[in-house]
């Protein structure tokens, strides 16, 4: 119980700090590693929120597969370091608007979440599978994602392929 609370709040703080590091780093490779830390601490939060299956998926799919793909491309292209922030108006406007958005969304979330019901139900992968497949509500969407993945795969190969004669 106490360990739960320590883990959750620790993971939340690590997520906040490493999330900030993602945009504070100059080089993309440091951002990628910060993002991996963010994803792993979010996985801890998922587990503490009672959805262990999503936590496992977060580590395996996001931190494992997608971020390795990112790191692979960064190292393949050997990009030079980011020369700094976007100058002038757009950068400053983004930061100012971001701070306003942060404050107002935190206030709205904090006030609104007080009216939410409280549940302590742990869910397993079997529950997720039952929700996905036992009714046709999500079944067609699930089948559609297979077509999405297939077309994304074909599209990625076509876009990244070297053209003949070049």
């Amino acid at each position: 119980m106490i360990l739960d609370v320590i883990l959750f709040y620790g993971a939340a703080m690590v997520a906040l700090a490493s999330g900030l590091f993602v945009i504070a780093q100059r080089s993309p490779i440091n951002s990628a590693f910060s993002l991996i830390v963010t994803m792993c601490s979010l996985a801890v939060m998922f587990a503490m929120l009672g959805s262990g299956f999503i936590a496992v998926l977060q580590v395996v799919v996001y931190a494992g597969a997608i971020m390795v793909l990112f790191l692979f491309v960064i190292m393949l292209l050997n990009t030079k370091q980011d020369e700094g922030d976007r100058g002038g108006g757009i950068g400053r406007a983004a930061i100012a608007l971001g701070i306003i958005l942060a404050i107002q969304s935190m206030v709205v979330v904090w006030k609104g979440a007080e009216t939410l019901p409280v549940n302590h139900k742990e869910t397993t992968s079997a529950d997720v599978a039952r929700g996905l497949f036992s009714s046709p509500r999500f079944l067609y969407a699930f089948e559609a994602t297979s077509i999405l993945i297939l077309s994304a795969m074909v599209g990625a190969i076509v876009v990244a392929r070297k053209e003949k004669g070049k």
């Binding site: 959750f8 709040y9 939340a12 997520a15 906040l16 999330g19 900030l20 993602v22 945009i23 963010t38 939060m45 929120l49 980011d82 020369e83 700094g84 922030d85 976007r86 757009i90 950068g91 406007a93 983004a94 930061i95 971001g98 958005l101 942060a102 969304s105 935190m106 979330v109 904090w110 979440a113 007080e114 939410l116 409280v118």
Partner: peptide, 23 residues
């Protein structure tokens, strides 16, 4: 739940700022 939603809002805003600020 409350803390998770606050963290979620913060991370979303950080991502939004990053999209506009990074080159």
């Amino acid at each position: 739940v409350q803390v998770a939603l606050a963290v979620s809002a913060f991370l979303f805003v950080v991502g939004t700022i990053g999209v506009f600020v990074r080159r």
